[in-house]
Each structure stands twice: as C-alpha cells, then as structure tokens.
Amino acid sequence: MKKRATTSASAGRQRLDNLAGYLFISPWLFGFLALTVIPIIASIFLSFTNYDILSPPRWVGLQNFKKMFFEDPRYWKSVRATLYYALTAVPLRLIVALSVAMLLNTSRRGVALYRALFYVPSVVGDSVAVAVMWRQIFGGDGLVNAFLRLFGLPGKRLWLADPQFAIWTLILLAAWQFGSAMLIFLAGLKQIPYELYESADIDGAGPVRKFFSITIPQLTPIIFFNLVMQTINGLIVFTPALIITNGGPLDTTNFYALYLYKRGFENFQMGYASAMAWILMLVTALLTLVIFKTSSRWVFYESEVK
C-alpha cells in the first residue's frame, strides 16, 4: 500500500474508510448489540426483579438470590449435579482425547481416515439427534441391555430411571465426544521436537518415562487450554440432560443450565432465572481464574526456556 501524507484530505479519506468498515460489520454489530449485549445488561437488572413476561418486572432487591441460596433445595441439588458432572466428565474426556490422539500420532496408513471418523461424534455432538440415540441405547429395551443379555446377564436395569446410573450415561456421552479436544492434542503432539525423544532413547528411557517426562510437560499449554474450554463446557451442559433424562430421576441430572431453563421458560420466572445465570457466570469466571492462576505452576512454555 502507498504511504499517505497526513493532509486534511487524507484524514477525510480515513474517516470515510472507517465508516465503510463500520458499515460492513454493521449487520454483525447490530446483532451483537441487540441479541447479546443488551440482553446481558437487561438480565443484570432482571435478576433483582420478579418478571413473568406478562406483567412488567417488579423490583424485589436481593430476594431471588436469597431464595436461591437458602430456600430452594432443588437449586443446591442442581449445583451438586453440575459439579459432579464437570469433575468427572471433563477429566474423562481429556484422558480419552489424549489417548486417542497419541494412537493417531503415527504415520501409519489410513490415519487421516481414523482421525476424521473419531471426530464425527463431536461434529454431531451436542445435537438433539445424538441425545435421542443415546436415550434409545440406554433405554429399558435398548442396546446396552440387549448386549448384557447376550452374555447371560440380567440386562433389565433401567439405566435412565436409576438415580445412581442416569448421570453416568451423560458422562459417558461426554467422554465419547472427545473429538475437538483430541484434534487440539494431536496438533500439540506434532509440535513436540523429535530430538527430545531421540535423546531420551539414547539415555535408555522407556515409553512410560518418556510420556511423563517429555510428552506431558511439553503438552501442558494444550492441556491447559483444553481444561479451560472443557470446564466451561461442562458447567453449562444442557442439551443431553434435557433430551435424555430431562433432569430426572430424583433431580440427579438436573444440571444448572437445565434448571435455569426450566425456571425461566417453563415456570416463567425470568427474574429468578437471570439471577441464576449471573451466579453461573461468576462461578465459571472464578473457576477459570483459578485454573489460570495455578497455571504458572504447571504449564510449561517453550519460550520460557532461557
């Protein structure tokens, strides 16, 4: 591009350019403001009101928060269920993702095909269709029970109606949808300098030693990224719980986002739902902050090597 002299004419030109730029992004900007920013701001206000959509919001101060923390047993159940899910599903998914990534990090023939195949569950991942399929698989006459019967086992357990097992069907689903984390791990694995393994070989290190002393430390930035993303995803899990168990049995899968949705859109308690949403947002931010703060102790960046 040619360099422009700073005359008033070119300043006008600059303004015009800016205007054109803003015009070009205006559809997005409009959507962002109208559908994201303004509702977010509105929800801060709504969280201090009673609002059922039909009549105007009524200011109630901190009553929604008080009710949430001290008077709503289902709220704490949903918090517990969500934390349980996040603490099991996220590590499980990361472990599966890393294992598969390491299997695929070879130069065998057909690896590209497998890579694509393993990624498929995540492409269709959060969809209703997969959730419906999962419901069938774990249903009373579903695939899992049929499989158990094949080996002479009773195969009569109602997985989705069992307070002990229902949440595990959802955790399994999460573990199965490891695709995006797996791809990121795979990219990370390819970045690890081959010399490191070579010199380890010369020093006589076995595969386990190499994994823990080279692969894991070298991967920590990637693990860090995946951990943050997956934790956020885990805390806002919604679709599978809505479709597969609808929060039941005994509220064991009534995850936070699902309960929020039910309060807002089934009971029309928008104020309460907004208050819940802000607590979720604060907790998510806080957890992410904790992960970030601790990261300096365990995340290793190549650039830090002096």
């Binding site: 249903g139 009373g140 006459d141 109602l158 989705l160 109606a161 069992d162 609808n246 039941g248 049995p249």
Partner: peptide, 12 residues
C-alpha cells in the same frame, strides 16, 4: 414401579 412406568410406559 415408578422407574418402569417412567421408562417403559410413557411416564417420562
């Protein structure tokens, strides 16, 4: 049982 009703007889 309630479980059977929910999962097999359309309770859910």
């Amino acid at each position: 049982t309630y479980q059977e009703y929910m999962s097999s007889f359309g309770g859910a």
